[in-house]
Amino acid sequence: MNDAVLTLENFSVSYEKKEVLHEISTAIRPNRITAIIGPSGCGKSTLLKSINRMLEEEGGVSCKGSIFLNGQDIRKMPVEELRRRVGMVFQTPAPFPMSIYKNMTYAPQYYGVGKKQELDRIVRENLEITGLYEEVKEELGKSALKLSGGQQQRLCIARALTAQPEILLLDEPCSALDVKSTQIIEDLLVQLKQRYTIVIVTHNLFQARRIADDCIFLLNGQLWEQGNTRELFEAPSRQETRDYLAGVYA
């Protein structure tokens, strides 16, 4: 697959001596939503964290194989550059304990944007993308911690976008949210894929089915099956996938 933005080749991860991901090979295509699904403990989050090397922040991890971002080996890239190009949103909303405005200018200031006008523009544009601007435009100086859970998560997505990434990784971004907020975020993700490539870990099969173009099914650290979401859900080719989709492992 030449048009893949992200390619994994025989990628394995071990914690201490225990292997949690075994020789994963796959390709993630641009401007699509790829969902990583599978039962708890199958290595979904580990796989996601490998892509921006966040896994390295946890001690005792060793990796084998390679991951390529647009053909470049991510292990040969400076980690800061990789993480700028591959943004991440976490399971629990993680707004910084500062104002909404400062949350949004945190990364741009690091990348050298100093002009107030320019910063204002970045804040506005990215908040607009996530639909948060209209809700908070009067109170950008308010602490981000005072926002609702759903708003906080959208702020985190907007904040991730301020670094101008190519890929957005989301680790069960809706699992701490209510139905309404979940729906807003799902709509947002579908809209975002025009500009970004999205990889989302989810244990919610309905969610995967609703928003994902492609699915990767992991089981016991192995890539069990992958493909177009509709095909995978309607005609899984392996028995275990069928069992999982039918709720046997849940």
Partner: peptide, 27 residues
């Protein structure tokens, strides 16, 4: 300091030094 915040900062591609200066020391 909440490790999640520190990871969220790293995930924006900013350096450790910047994270410490802007986020951690303030906290």
């Amino acid at each position: 300091v909440d490790p999640l915040l520190i990871r969220a900062s790293y995930s924006l591609g900013v350096s450790r030094a910047y994270t410490i200066r802007k986020l951690v020391l303030g906290q």
